[in-house]
Structure formats: structure tokens, C-alpha cells
Design a protein around this nucleic acid. Structure first.
Lengths: 215, 215
DNA sequence: CACTTGTCCTGTCATGCCGTCAGCTTACCG
DNA sequence: CGGTAAGCTGACGGCATGACAGGACAAGTG
């Protein structure tokens, strides 16, 4: 499916070329963590990678193009978040554990990729369909699983009929993403990391099942 | 408290100057809604305002400086969000109404200021303390009220002791902000605006009281 | 009315990044 | 060794940036 890696002018990239390309991506990734997105310049990325700006433009149309590439790579990993929910039960004590593990896995993923996720979030919010699609790819896996879980509970009569599974699941996923993005912010509200997680898990459990967890 | 408006080089701005300054802010505000933050250039803002780039630099150190100004103005309005919660009850039917009105007011505020809020969110996530502070100013009003409400219910024994009011309130507020920022995104999950609100209100009510609302 | 004062705006300029091209170097293959 | 395609860069026109000095303008003063 994935065609060969190509340069902007159509040539096929070989071993060396791919290495350079990857090095540029890595350096860009680093720069995104250390300086505002708005201030990331092609020339800085190139310098950091020990090459020239012209080389950058051989592999990417612009900074945004390279960012999209990084985001795609991350989204591919992010699809693995589905595992946090697949085949899990929401009943009784195991339900509480499911909620906890979901929160844990989600926050960890966000922490590991926070720089690129910030940019993706912005792009999506600004209405860029490409970023939007990537954001969906990551969130969809979790969202669909959650939505299914709620719908199933609903069909068993354990959840009110006027609940919209997709809306609740989407809101919960948005909450997880937002809290993850502003993890540091909570400290100024006097909330520590360790305290945050169980309370988030509680909210997730409440949202999915409508009931307090039994621990 | 608010000192006189000053130009970058220290002069005091008069009537005409303030008008120009405000016009630049308005034009910048518009540009933020229509093009990516990264691509907003001083020269475009100046052109749109019918003036020259040099004039812009007389009133603001750079684009970010002007954005901060807009954000401050918005934050001042945003402090009014407290009213959505002041003196409201979370018991019985009025509790359900409180939740609904909070969601309504919050989404409306976000919809009205989405462009600038996106930038504030990004700045805060990137660790810029000035943006961070502004974001706090807006969210704090809601967060504190929510947190107090939970703490009060907790003191009456209506909410479990191991709930951390600040953590839950913060998470709920983050959820509202995130959903508001990506309102359009929900349509691709097959969720319409009208359906979204009651489900959000449900989650808020569940989070605050730990119980389903009685309608 | 001329003159002064202080505000307000712009023309211009040095600087630095952007994005492109021609052309050089390097690697591979027969 | 010669040919070919990949890989890289110096250099360049173009544009945004940010600083300054000086011109335009309004208001007050004699």
C-alpha cells in the first residue's frame, strides 16, 4: 500500500536519502518540544540536522508537510490504544480496573507525544482536514470501543435510553485528551498527578455505566 | 488599576491612537478566524487595517503581543461565566437545570471566541505562562465554583470521601473546553449539536453529584 | 494668523528567513 | 572506467521583520 518514499521533485529516495529524511523528522520533532510551533523555522531544523535548508525542501513541501508526516507515524502507534478496551468488562470490580487502565494508557500516550499532539490539536481546531483526520484516527479507536460498550449496556437496560452512546463516549475521550494536554495545569489547582488518575477513572466509569464503581 | 495605553516607545496613546490600535486588534482577531495562527503576518494585519506594518509595531512588540491583548479582553468577559454557577443548587430537578445551563453557557462562550481560545490553548499547552494565566483566569471561575459545590456535597456525605473535588471539577471543565473546541468534530461521529448538550450535561451532573439527574 | 507642542503615521533600510535552481559530489551498476 | 541517478548545497530574488527619523496633523497659545 505505502508507495516508495519520494522526494518533492519525484525521485525515489534510497538508503542515504531516507536516513537524511528521518533525521530531519527527528530534529523537527525535538524542536517542537522545545520551542513554540509558530517559531519553528526550516533553517533551524536543517542546521540541527547538520544539513542545508535546500535539503529540507527536497523531502518536504514545508514545515507543515513534515509535521503531518510525524503525526502520521504517531497516529499509527496510537491505533494501539484500542487494546486498552478490547474485550474488557465494565461490570463490577473489573469495570473499575478497565477504567483505570484506560486512563493510565491514555495519559501515558499523550505524555510521550505531547509536542506533536499539541500541533495536531491546533490544526484540527483550525479546521485543517488533514490534521483533523489524524486526530480522529487516534481518538476513534478509543471512541468506538467506548461507544460500543455503552450501547451494549444500554441494550441490556443497564443504561438509560436517552443516553447517546457516541456523544458520551466522544465527550469522555475529549476529556481525557484535554486533561492529558494540560496535565501540568492541574498542579496549580493543587491537584497532583497521582490524585488525578483515580478521579478521572471515576468520571469515565460514571459516564460509561452511570454508576459509581465498586472497588 | 489599568494604566494608560502606551505605545512601545513609551508615549501615551490619545484618542486617535487608541482607535488605530483597536482597529489593528479587530483585524488581527478576524485573521485568526480565517487563517492558521502560524501564517498570520504583521503585514497582512496592517494592510487589512488600512495602515502600515510600522504602525503595528508602534503599538505591539509582535503578533504574539497583540494576541495576548485580545486574549486579556476576552478573559475579562469570560470571568462572567461564574454567574452560570453562583447560588445554583445541585439537588433534584434544579440540579439538572444547573448542569444544562452551565453546558449551554460554556459552549456559547467558546463558540463566540473560538479563534482566540485556540491560540490561548496552544500557548498554554506549550508552557507559555502568560497564556497559561489567561486560560486559568477563564477556567478558574467555573472550576472554583464547581469544586466548591462538590466539596459541599461531600461534607454532607452525599459524595464519596475519596473524591478529590478539584480534580473532578478540573476534569469536567477541561472536558467542556475540549468539546467546545472540537464541536464540529462530533458530527463525524454522527452526533448532532442538539444531542450533544444534554449528554454533556448528564456527564457534568454525574461528575458533580455522583448520581443520575432526576428530570 | 503664525508658531509651538505633542500625537500619529509612514518611507526607508538593514537584516534574516523562505523557497527554488543549477550544478556539484557521491554511490551504484554493467 | 564511464554512465546514470541519487543526494546535497551555494547562491539568489523575494518578502516579512523591526528600527528609525522625519513628515502630517490636530490643538492650544500669543
Amino acid at each position: 500500500m505505502t508507495g516508495q518514499v519520494r522526494t518533492v521533485d519525484g525521485r525515489v529516495a534510497g538508503r542515504r536519502g531516507q536516513a537524511t529524511r528521518q533525521k530531519l523528522l527527528d530534529c523537527l520533532s525535538e524542536m517542537l518540544s522545545s520551542s513554540p510551533y509558530r517559531d519553528v523555522k526550516v533553517i533551524d531544523v536543517a542546521r540541527k540536522a547538520g544539513t542545508s535548508p535546500a535539503t529540507f525542501y527536497q523531502y518536504f513541501p514545508d514545515v507543515e508537510g513534515a509535521v503531518l508526516e510525524i503525526a502520521e507515524q504517531m497516529a499509527a502507534e496510537g491505533a494501539g490504544l484500542t487494546e486498552l478496551l478490547e474485550g474488557r468488562s465494565w461490570a463490577g470490580k473489573s469495570g473499575w480496573q478497565t477504567a483505570q487502565e484506560l486512563v493510565d494508557g491514555f495519559l501515558e500516550f499523550w505524555r510521550k507525544n505531547d509536542a506533536i499532539l499539541r500541533v495536531v490539536d491546533l490544526g484540527a481546531a483550525e479546521g485543517d482536514k488533514r490534521f483533523y483526520k489524524i486526530r480522529m484516527k487516534i481518538l476513534n479507536s478509543v471512541n468506538n470501543s467506548l461507544s460500543d460498550a455503552i450501547a451494549e449496556l444500554q441494550s441490556k437496560g443497564r443504561v438509560d435510553k436517552d443516553v447517546n452512546p457516541a456523544a458520551v463516549a466522544g465527550s469522555l475521550v475529549a476529556m481525557l485528551a484535554a486533561v492529558a494536554a494540560h496535565q501540568k495545569g492541574f498542579s496549580s489547582w493543587g491537584v497532583k498527578q497521582a490524585e488525578l488518575k483515580p478521579n478521572l477513572a471515576l468520571l469515565v466509569h460514571l459516564g460509561v455505566t452511570g454508576k459509581k464503581p465498586s472497588r
